[in-house]
Amino acid sequence: MFTTGDLKIKSRVDQVGIEERAASLSKRSIKKETKKAGIKLAISMIDLTTLEGKDSAGKVEAMCQKAIRPLDPSTELRVNDDIPSVAAVCVYPNMVSIAKKALAGTNIKVASVATGFPSGLTPLPIKIEETKRVVDMGAHEVDMVIDRGAFLSGEHKKVFDEIVKIKEACGPAHLKVILETGELETYDNVRMASWLAMTAGADFIKTSTGKAAVNATLPVTLVMLETIRDYWYETGRMVGMKPAGGIRTSKQALQYLVLVKETLGDAWLSNKWFRFGASTLTNDLLMQLVKESTGRYQSLDYFTID
């Protein structure tokens, strides 16, 4: 169990220090084999996401094809390496069954946002009901959002209890808890919310909905990774991490992998424990991978936009 006081004690982060550390890690030079391996690892960690009001079955089906086979192996740009599938697709509840069908027979997971995404401001029974529905429809993973208003006004117990209830409603499905760090503003809050979510049962903690003004950043992710590490030391339970929103380039993705490697080590360097929530990252990873193989800088004209 948790108390607010305990969380506060565990939640001291110096802004300048954490930002300097993140900046320093972001300068790691990733070249050659490391770069190729990193890019492939990153592709395998993607939660390929579409979360728009205009999402349709056609859009989701197309995205699922990209998820299965990110690059056409018959293209002239074919790289000798095997290109992995992404880890999951992430959609709104109404699209779960469509995605399920499109991904049948693959290992790609279906993740659905729930709990009144992106604000998290629907009544708890409805959040529970929504969660149960998406799990019933076959979602392997549920991306819930916390009630930031409650968190910021000090109602930590309320946030905690909601997560506990949603975790129950998930049954066998994995629960990712979105903290919406851009709205929590301080690193102390990010760390506190991370502890809170993990203590309440989160399988993953996730930075953002992608709908706020500020989404995933390196220092925020570093704070969350360090909290995961400390939680693991304290409880022995591994929790996964998912930065989401604003990660569009290979360079960024590799910087995130550096954070994982140097904060949590080898055990977390897999899509079981680390995901990217992204919609356009895939193509840049592919372009950089092809560039590494061919020595030619690439054009987006040769990569499918789905």
Binding site: K31, R229, G265, D266, A267, L269
Partner: peptide
């Protein structure tokens, strides 16, 4: 924690 060579820097 294992800070090994699963993904090592070239």
């Amino acid at each position: 924690l294992n800070f090994g060579k699963k993904w090592d820097y070239a």
